[in-house]
Amino acid sequence: CIDACDSVMAQVGRPRGLIDYCTLDDAATEMAGGVAPPIRKTLFRPRTLFYFGLWGAIGLAMLFTLGQRTRLDLAVQHERSPLYVQLSDGAIRNNYTLKLRNMELRPRRVEISVSGLPEARLWIDGGSRETARQSLHMPLAPDSVTSARLFVVAPGAGPARQDFTIAVRALDDDPRGDRETIQFDRPGTEP
Rank of each mutant, 00 (worst) to 15 (best):
R40D: 14
W123H: 13
R45I: 10
Y84Q: 03
E111F: 04
I124P: 04
R69N: 06
S88H: 04
G177W: 02
R176M: 08
L24P: 08
R93W: 02
A132M: 03
A148E: 08
D89G: 03
P175H: 05
L63V: 01
G158H: 06
E79H: 09
R161P: 00
G17H: 04
S81E: 15
D26K: 08
L98F: 14
K99N: 03
T65F: 00
I2H: 00
Q11D: 05
P187G: 15
Q77V: 13
L100A: 04
R40V: 11
S115W: 12
R133H: 12
L43H: 08
P118L: 13
R71M: 12
A57L: 15
K99Q: 14
D125N: 11
N102C: 00
L105Q: 09
N102G: 02
T23P: 06
H137A: 03
L18F: 13
G33E: 14
R80P: 01
I92G: 00
G126T: 10
P191F: 00
V153L: 05
E130D: 14
Y51M: 11
L66Y: 07
R186I: 04
D25L: 09
C22T: 09
D172F: 13
T181C: 03
F184I: 07
D26S: 09
I112C: 14
T189E: 15
S88A: 15
A75M: 15
V168D: 01
G127D: 07
D26G: 09
L83E: 12
L72T: 04
T189W: 08
A28H: 11
C5Q: 02
R133C: 10
L98N: 11
P139C: 13
G56S: 15
C22L: 10
L150P: 06
V8F: 09
F164S: 07
L60Y: 05
F184L: 12
G90Y: 08
P118M: 12
E111M: 13
K99I: 00
W55V: 13
D20F: 09
T189P: 06
P175S: 13
A132Y: 01
G188A: 03
Y96H: 06
L72H: 04
L136G: 13
A148G: 05
D6L: 03
P142L: 05
D185L: 12
V85D: 15
F52R: 11
F50G: 08
R108D: 06
D20L: 07
D73W: 02
I182D: 07
L140V: 01
